[in-house]
Design a binder for these strands. Structure first.
Lengths: 187, 187
DNA sequence: CCTGTTACTTGCCAAATGGCAATTCTAGCA
DNA sequence: TGCTAGAATTGCCATTTGGCAAGTAACAGG
């Protein structure tokens, strides 16, 4: 759990003892490429830290899958809607590539929040950062062409080279054919 | 500050004594229609609760203003990028309509976080909710046409009736003429 | 009431994107 | 090696959106 330790320490100043208590609440889980961390209909009860690999979150619209978000290693991730509401999620979380995920139950998380005020601060900062990321996503729709969004996205992770085109296309808000044509122009 | 009290109580269970201490750190400020709460180049150091009215946040792209987000009464709001980084903001926050805003300095906020762990929880929940809102915004770009986004947006607040068309257009990620044409079709 | 400014609409045409289907490419597997 | 299913590309055409400029409407100030 070195990656997670470092990540936490980059956000808050915490003693090793407290850190160990916190880390002991995480469980390691390996998700093979293309397999699922969460499937639609399930109730999401955990937060996830991506130790290695990458995940995509998508949902079914009509008969198509819409990729809503992509997350890569060293990030926290979950489907917050279901987690907060306790309702079954509409989303599926799938591994882009075999990934190691550290999971922590939301009840444990709440418990740690109470136990360590510093951890509550950590949680707050995580969501502030997540918020900033998503806001940038919105801005990209308001100010960039699909082509610019594509180029920007590809810089995020070289994992994306191996993601099927149609998954990327729906993430960019365009169709597979359009993305294919865009890509031809770029070359 | 009744609106704020109610808002806080809807999020956390807090004693009236603690609540009073917290409320005493907020300052009321009235922003006339079209005037600015924050202007680009300033360093944002406060969080804002909109007691009444509505605000828009925009930035200059080339010679145009891009409306990045709209916020209405009973919501917390700030430009988090500048607030967290301490760098001058690229954004301007303007009153759509004369608004009463309760401001709290980020240092005071941090202090309260330390003093009341419950308040830290409040802060976390605010950002979780903000995150959810913005994620829904992203989804609307991935799954809805500009027309659907327009109709959805108009349901948010009747304040929007009075917002100039071009501000709405940039928020939707389209041009003013396109929105004008859309609107004609809808009628 | 006039005037100037700003907001909004519209026409024209170009560019971007979508929808659909046929074709080509690719990678895994018998 | 050859087959096959899924992925990606491409062609054709319709629709949406953009860019620009001209025209119209709304509104505030003198």
């Amino acid at each position: 759990m070195i990656a997670l330790s470092q990540f936490i320490k980059s956000q808050i100043t915490i003693s090793n003892e407290d850190l160990d208590v916190i880390l002991s609440n995480f469980q390691e889980r390996t998700i093979e490429k293309d397999r699922f961390l969460v499937q639609k209909g399930q109730i999401v009860t955990s937060y996830y830290f991506i130790q290695s690999g990458g995940l995509r979150i998508y949902f079914d619209k009509d008969d198509k899958q819409i990729t809503g978000w992509l997350a890569f290693q060293n990030n926290f991730f979950t489907e917050l809607n279901s987690l907060k509401s306790g309702q079954p999620t509409l989303f599926t979380i799938q591994a882009i590539e075999t990934s190691i995920v550290l999971t922590i139950d939301k009840n444990k998380m709440e418990q740690l929040y109470q136990q360590f005020p510093l951890w509550q601060q950590f949680g707050r900062q995580i969501w502030e950062n997540a918020f900033l990321n998503v806001v940038n996503g919105i801005l990209s729709y308001q100010t960039m062409t699909a082509e610019e969004r594509y180029l920007t996205m590809m810089k995020q992770s070289d994992l994306l080279q191996r993601v099927p085109l149609k998954q990327l296309a729906s993430y960019l808000g365009i169709t597979q054919s359009s993305l294919s044509r865009l890509r031809k122009n770029i070359k």
